[in-house]
Simulated assay, not measured.
Amino acid sequence: MGNQVEKLTHLNYAEVPTSDPNGFEPDDNGPRIGVSYIFSNDDDDQDENLDRFSSEKNMVNHEEKPFDPGDQLECSIFYREECVYETNTGAETHSAESLLNKCRPGDLLEFLNTGQYPQWAVYVGDFQVVHLHRAEIKNNFLTDVSQGKKGRIVNGLYRYSALPPEVIVRNALDHVGSRDRELYWRNSECFAAWCRFGKREFKIGGEIRIGKQPYRLKLLFSEKKNHVLEFQSLEDVIMEKRRNDQIGKDAVMQELANHLNTTNEIKEDYFAN
C-alpha cells in the first residue's frame, strides 16, 4: 500500500453517508454515529493541496480575522474507550514575542486565526521553529511563522508520552527541506505531533483502514448536546477536527442541524455510561 491512499472529500455532513440517526444499526449492539472518510490535505494554505491527494480546490472561502476562543468547538478523540486528545479551550494565547519567553526546545506550538486552519510548529531553540508549510518542511523564525497570529503551547492536547526534547528536535530538523512526494504527513499538526510523540498513526497510511472504526471524534456543543463521528484512523480524525477548527463552532452546528433534519436534536453523549 505504501502512501497510496484512496481519496474522498466532502464539503458538509449532508453529503456524507451515516448510520441510523437514532444511533443504532441493524445487527449491531451499540451506538454508532457516522462513518470514516478522508478529507483533502489542508496544509495551511487552501490552494496548495498536493496533487497526489486531490486535484480539487477547497471552494469554501472564510474571512480571516483574529482568533475568537468563543468560536472554537470543544472536542475529544477516543481510541476505543481511551481518550487520546482533548481540546483545551481555556488555554491562553500569546503574541509571538511573548511565546519566545515561554518556549523550550521540543515544545509544540499552535498559531490561530478564525477562518483558517491552525498552524502547528515544533520549537527547536534559537527563536526558530520547524513546520510544514505549503507542502514543504521549513525552518523559520517563530515571529515569521506567526504572521501576526497569536499562539499557544499545546504539548498536552495529545495524551501520548512525549519523546525526549533532543529527539523531538532531531525529528523535526532531520526533515527540513522535505517536500511534495517526500512528505509523510498531510498537515502541520500531523507533522508536529509525530515529531513529539513518534507515533506512526500521524503519518500518511500509518494505519490500515479496514474493519470497524476504532476512533471516535466527540464534538461538544454544551453539557448535554454533542455529536459523535467514527473513523478508521487517527489521521482521518485530525483532518475532520482541523476542518471544524477552520469553519468554526456555529458552522459545524449548522451542518449537523441540517444533516439531522432539526436544529435541536444533536445526539446525547454516548460515553456517559
Rank of each mutant, 00 (worst) to 15 (best):
L132S: 12
E81G: 12
M239I: 04
T93C: 11
S40M: 13
E223S: 07
P17R: 09
G248K: 02
N88E: 12
Q246L: 14
G70W: 04
F197K: 00
G30N: 07
S98P: 05
T262S: 13
N3Q: 14
F78C: 08
D250L: 03
A272H: 08
S19L: 05
I77Y: 02
E230K: 11
S95C: 14
V228G: 00
Q46G: 04
P165Y: 02
F231W: 03
I168E: 06
E189P: 02
L157G: 01
K102Y: 05
E240V: 06
I204A: 08
D45I: 07
G90V: 06
L220Y: 00
S36Q: 09
D44I: 00
L100K: 04
E63N: 06
N58K: 08
Y37N: 13
T9F: 01
A121D: 05
D42A: 12
L109W: 07
E265K: 15
R200C: 08
F141E: 13
I204T: 11
R52S: 01
D71W: 00
E268G: 12
K212M: 15
N273E: 11
H133F: 04
D144Q: 12
V35K: 05
D45W: 00
E48P: 00
I33W: 13
N258S: 11
A193Q: 14
H94Y: 14
T263W: 11
P31K: 14
R134G: 02
L99H: 03
D51H: 07
P164T: 01
I168A: 09
K241Y: 14
S40K: 10
N29I: 14
H131M: 07
S178V: 08
D236P: 04
P66A: 13
K138N: 12
V176T: 03
N226C: 14
F141K: 15
R159F: 09
I168H: 04
A257L: 03
N113H: 00
Y184D: 11
N258R: 09
K65P: 01
T89A: 13
L50K: 03
F111E: 12
L112F: 04
G156I: 05
L260K: 04
G248S: 05
D51C: 10
R32K: 09
S233V: 00
W185V: 10
F221Y: 15
Q147W: 00
E15P: 02
T143R: 11
N88Q: 13
G115W: 07
E110A: 02
K241V: 11
Y158T: 08
